[in-house]
Design a protein around this nucleic acid. Structure first.
Length: 445
DNA sequence: AAGACGGGGCA
DNA sequence: TGCCCAGTCTT
């Protein structure tokens, strides 16, 4: 027998060992999770979408609420989008929620409300890629398909000492091929979950717990002492900083006790979520330290102009607090200013057009009374009208690239005056949820 | 192939 | 506080 043949034989033995002992460990150690209590393909599907980029402990309460509110594919397909988004509030990557509902409509219309068990059909669902397709097919239908996520790539790269960069596309394909070979006959669902469970509980990114690992004896990385340097992965580039001025506008008169919020556009960052209005801060003065707080007067002036341009009748009064919001590609620093709504005064003819455009969206219709789609496509004309009607002494804001065209286009979106009670009807990103709660706490309302 | 797209846990 | 985690869609 040649050296190569011996190597192949040893490799084969390592694979058999791995599959057998991992599966045995899983049957003894698996966690009791809500989506493991039934083998309902809909539950499996929802859980897998939620588990993308999100840990199990975070997902559990969201999963339970979601299933309670949308118990079936049809319930999800027929729900108002705002309700789905509200149910996803705080979970992040909100396009997952939109895609999920789109896919529910696909399942309802194309497959009679039954999650398909066919590879091409599952893969064609919006929001379902190679990993999720494999997870649904194997866990819900016990089909021998690989389900390779970050946990699986970490486990396999260590056990087989694979040094390929897991951030590269071809590496995932290679891992899928390997993972498929490891699936024991008739055990696809349990085996794929076992692989992920090991990655989550034992073979963790930082300091893997090798001693209780069921497959440590034949782990190539452990034997070579290099388990903490695997997997190889190119690191992401740091998020770019972005300074923004936000307005917490306190209502007066009929809006007393309420604050102004607006809805973001239908696409892009935080699509269709609600927020406090905010705009790019002007670049800091030359000589000033990067990220330095803008002089109060300059910030107040800037905010006054931004609000005026957005058709918000309010006067900035002073700095309230700062908040930070980190995305994977941007870091927002929000300087929040308290502002007071101004009573509408008799308007010059040319100013009326500015305010009129924004007032169209005002009102207090209940959740679901309108969809963001109703506003799509209106933005340009409204903004153009506002710019054109800008009074001469209040020159249009200098243009500079804020990097968030979506947020800046939100000037033409829907606005609402809300109390703390009304917050339950709108979906907010976490940073605004925290700001609004702080504000209402301070007010004692 | 690279960038867009949130939020939380850990040392 | 800074570092790490990572599926799918879009360009």
């Amino acid at each position: 027998m040649t050296t190569d043949e011996k190597h192949i034989e040893a490799q084969q033995e390592a694979k058999l060992f791995f599959s057998r002992f991992l599966l045995e460990w899983y049957h003894l150690q698996k966690r009791d999770l809500p989506w493991r209590r039934h083998r309902n393909p809909y539950y499996i599907w929802i859980s897998e979408i939620m588990l993308q980029q999100t840990r199990v402990d975070t997902v559990i309460p969201y999963f339970n609420r979601f299933i309670e509110q949308f118990p079936t594919v049809e319930a999800l397909a027929d729900a108002p989008e705002e309700e789905v988004l509200k149910c996803w509030e705080g979970l992040g990557y909100y396009s997952r929620a939109r895609n999920l509902q789109h896919a529910a409509k696909q399942v309802k219309e194309l497959y009679g409300g039954q999650v398909p068990d066919d590879r091409d059909a599952v893969f064609s669902l919006k929001g379902v890629g190679p990993y999720t397709a494999g997870a649904i097919l194997s866990i819900a239908f016990n089909r021998p398909e690989p389900a390779v996520d970050g946990n699986v790539m970490r486990v396999l790269s260590r056990y087989f000492r694979i040094e390929d960069d897991i951030a590269k596309g071809p590496t995932r394909v290679k891992m899928e091929k390997l993972a498929a070979e490891l699936i024991p006959e008739g055990e696809a669902g349990s085996f794929n979950q076992a692989l992920m469970e090991l990655g989550a509980l034992i073979c963790t990114p930082k300091s893997p717990r090798c001693l209780p690992c069921p497959v440590m004896e034949h782990c190539a990385a452990r034997l070579a002492g290099c388990e903490t340097s695997l997997p190889v992965k190119t690191k992401a580039k740091p998020p770019r900083p972005e300074e923004r001025l936000a307005a917490l506008v306190e209502g007066r008169g009929e809006h007393a006790g309420r604050v102004l919020i607006r809805q973001r556009p239908a696409s892009g960052l935080l699509a269709r979520m609600w927020e406090l209005p905010h705009w790019p801060a002007p670049p800091a003065e030359a000589g000033g330290a990067r990220g330095a707080l803008l002089p109060e007067a300059a910030a107040l002036d800037r905010l006054r102009r931004s609000m005026s341009q957005a058709g918000i009748l309010a006067r900035p009064e002073g700095h309230w607090m700062a908040a930070e919001h980190t995305f994977s590609h941007i870091v927002w620093t929000l300087q929040v200013y308290r502002c007071r709504e101004e009573a509408a005064l008799p308007l010059a003819a040319e100013s009326r057009a500015v305010y009129g455009a924004a007032l169209v969206e005002r009102g207090d219709s209940a959740l679901g009374a309108e969809s963001g789609a109703a506003h799509a496509g209106r933005g340009d004309s409204t903004l153009a009208a506002a710019l054109e009607a800008q009074p001469a002494e209040d020159a249009p804001l200098a243009l500079f690239d804020s990097g968030d065209a979506a947020a800046d286009a939100a000037d033409s979106g829907a606005q609402r005056w809300i109390s703390r009670e009304d917050m339950k009807n709108y979906a907010f990103p976490n940073v605004f949820l925290k700001l609004l709660n702080s504000y209402f706490d301070e007010q004692g309302t």
